[in-house]
């Protein structure tokens, strides 16, 4: 049985999680004494195949079908490939697009799926490490049988490196007509300010409780000469515009100083700001994951601390 990894690309470029999934796939292939196959579907498949030919990849299958992601084509191609190479283990990115086809593929293959893996071990069978309860705990999950689909969280495995000597072959896939058609893309979050340009960001999260309290954080940003940004719930609530959102689905920021106020530090948020030079966190929950990546932390009520901090700079 071999291991099959699918690469992910968007608008002409491979996404990093493709190389990370190759590392996870190689780990599994080693544990199972199997070959590692990589599939790349749509877009510039020949150019992508060259980039994906990293150390440890035994074979690359290119499927020329359209330019962009189409879950129908991905599922058809991976079903056919998985059958053809007897792929017992399929490793896919736990991305928005990954979650648009991985569960359907597992269902079509009749195998269990485990999503959002942050670690794994393979002995007699697969044991996946994943989070639960909003990152408050980790669990180990045993998977029955030796066939499965696994999706891996971005940033948890190092990217595959080097140059491999994979056999590259083109595969014809019969893609059935789809009832879901991509008609275009839209950039969101443009507007008056680009938070990615700021040297100092004051970022507000759910701990602010009410819309009218946002003003307090605006005052802090003014006092510090900083730009105001936010975590997802604030933008979902319509309290600040989308262009202020830091995180996986918003902007990735790397300011000199990032001050997280009332932000717990969900993984999607951290993905957008962990590259900041200095991270300060103010939060009431001492176990909040934001403190794991902070350089300075205050466990306290933002409604007590922030006014005092504004006074310091007034």
């Amino acid at each position: 049985m071999s291991v099959l990894v699918a690469a992910e690309h968007r608008r002409g470029a491979l996404r990093d999680v493709s190389y990370e999934a190759i590392t996870a796939g190689r780990e599994l292939a080693d544990a199972r004494g199997a070959d590692l196959h990589v599939a790349v579907i749509g877009g510039d498949v020949d150019g992508f195949a060259e980039d994906l030919n990293r150390d440890g990849v035994d074979a690359i299958h290119t499927v020329a079908d359209g330019e962009e992601f189409d879950h129908n084509a991905y599922q058809a191609a991976l079903s056919q490939l998985a059958d053809g190479i007897d792929a017992g283990a399929v490793v896919l990115p736990n991305s928005v697009n990954g979650l648009d086809y991985a569960p359907a593929l597992a269902e079509a293959l009749g195998v269990p799926i485990v999503t959002d893996a942050v670690g794994m071990a393979y002995d007699d069978g697969l044991t996946v490490t994943r989070e639960m309860y909003g990152s408050k705990v980790e669990t180990t999950v045993d998977v029955a049988g030796d066939r499965f689909v696994l999706t891996v969280r971005g940033g948890e495995w190092p990217p595959a490196e080097g140059v491999g000597d994979a056999a590259i072959e083109s595969v014809d896939v019969d893609v059935p007509e789809s009832g879901a058609r991509v008609t275009g893309f839209e950039e969101v979050g443009g507007g008056d300010v680009d938070i990615a340009d700021a040297d100092v960001l004051v970022s507000v999260g759910r701990g602010i409780e009410e819309e009218e309290n946002i003003e307090l954080i605006e005052d802090l940003a003014d006092a510090l000469g900083a730009t105001l940004s936010a975590s997802r719930p604030i933008v979902d609530n319509g309290w600040l515009p989308k262009n202020r959102q830091v995180g996986q689905s918003g902007k990735v920021v790397t300011p000199d100083v990032y001050i997280a106020v009332g932000i717990s530090g969900a993984v999607q948020h951290v993905a957008g700001m962990k590259g900041s030079d200095t991270i300060v966190a103010i939060n009431t929950d001492p176990n909040a994951p934001i403190f794991d990546i902070a350089d300075y932390g205050i466990v306290g009520d933002l409604f007590d601390v922030v006014p005092e901090l504004i006074d310091e700079f007034a």
């Binding site: 180990t140 998977v143 966190a281 350089d295 306290g300 007590d304 006074d311």
Partner: peptide, 27 residues
């Protein structure tokens, strides 16, 4: 086909300097 075999709190990777004191002192 899945069994949870363990649950634990992830070890804190924090090396943050935690600022102590009341609101005024920590600010």
């Amino acid at each position: 086909s899945l069994t949870i075999t363990s649950m634990y709190e992830p070890e804190s990777e924090s090396d943050a300097e935690m600022i102590e004191g009341d609101a005024g002192e920590s600010a």
